[in-house]
Design a protein around this nucleic acid. Structure first.
Lengths: 208, 208
DNA sequence: GCTGCCCTCAGCCTTTTGGCTGATATGGCC
DNA sequence: GGCCATATCAGCCAAAAGGCTGAGGGCAGC
């Protein structure tokens, strides 16, 4: 006892079981609860007050991981949240860090990496997987390539296959404005067609 | 002993641990080995001759799950392969079944579902998650919506954002032929722009 | 108060795309 | 042999998208 109390949040039971099994090998860590949704996570944080929350970002319908992180941070009860997810999309990383995540691990991380991140989190140190760190670094070096909120909104709709006219209707702006936004988006993503933009958005920005 | 011997194949250690922990609760099942790649899986099938192989489809670089299934089946040593993956894309399901998979489970499946699938597999029964089954059924009802090999090839390149001209060059066909294929693809996917086709391809057909 | 960024819009012109119709060749299947 | 699916190509036309220039309003920061 007296170890680091951990709450696991993932909608896949196998992943929770796997994490639980891994953490069981560490004498200083105790998994005190598991949640399969953002809503459930919030409740369990309240009732168990764990030191660290290990959370997936993608969790089916309902509250997503980002929102869950935000709300947990808003409780003001001092939990450190570690993101543990499959994808390292630029957008997800930025949003997670913005929401107050203390670390960002990929699911193919080595056990030691996971342990180190959890221990670091309780000490206020931020730990992230190398690929994640390099992406963050990349973003900081080229702030010109970061999409504005409006652009991100448009890109998100773009990935649904809408035409400029439809995009305009959806966003209550003229087709001319849509084209302006698109031109900016193309420049930032380094493409020159909407098709390539969609491909890049889904693959690199993680807009599924 | 004397239980069902199982080989786990997944590039994520947590998932393997989770499955191992789950299967450990079943007296009639023994995880005899774990692999983190298709190549490794093939080796371990040879050396351990498990009764069932539980395999993820997405596994980083190298041999993918589909190819691994095909090669395991080609060994002729009688292994039943169960797909255990996150996504239920039409293309993946069809290809997995074509390659000789005995079942197709999603990672959010309940433990009982997993156990039943493994027991079913050794008895020659095919078990799949309800969403997967319904997709297969859907495909069988509307064979008109199945893409031809050439169309699938083109669609795959399309998701990389290529123009018609580039597609033609890549496939050594004229732009006119590209347009013909695209028209057929649009019809089968139920869309009318390349943007929507890309969106659908990535989301429904799982062309990541 | 000026500067810079974001969001908005317009016009013009070229390229690309999509819809349509029709045609040829190939290979498998009955 | 005839049928059918697949793959290949052409031409024509309308619609959509993309590149370019220019411009106005709002708002934060210095």
């Amino acid at each position: 006892m007296g170890g680091i109390t951990v709450l696991l949040v993932d909608d896949h039971l196998v992943v929770r079981s796997g994490l639980r099994a891994l953490l069981a090998t560490q004498p200083d860590m105790d998994v005190v609860a598991e949640a399969s949704s953002g809503e459930e996570a919030l409740q369990l944080v309240r009732s168990h007050a764990p030191a660290v929350v290990v959370m997936d970002l993608a969790m089916g319908p309902g509250m997503d991981g980002i929102e869950a992180i935000r709300q947990i941070r808003n409780l003001g009860t001092g939990q450190s949240v570690l993101v543990f997810t499959t994808y390292d999309s630029d957008a997800d990383i930025v949003r997670a860090v913005d929401s107050g995540a203390m670390g960002y691990l990929l699911k193919d991380a080595a056990p030691e990496e996971i342990f180190a991140a959890i221990r670091g989190a309780v000490q206020g140190r931020s730990v992230m997987s190398p690929p994640v760190a390099s992406r963050l670094f990349q973003q900081m070096r080229n702030p010109d390539e970061v999409l504005t909120p409006r652009e991100a909104e448009l890109l998100s709709l773009l990935t649904e296959g809408l035409s400029n006219r439809e995009l305009g209707r959806r966003l209550f702006i003229s087709e001319a404005t849509v084209k302006t936004h698109l031109a900016h988006i193309y420049a930032k993503l380094g493409v020159d067609t909407r098709a390539a933009a969609i491909a890049t958005a889904i693959r690199r920005e993680g807009m599924r």
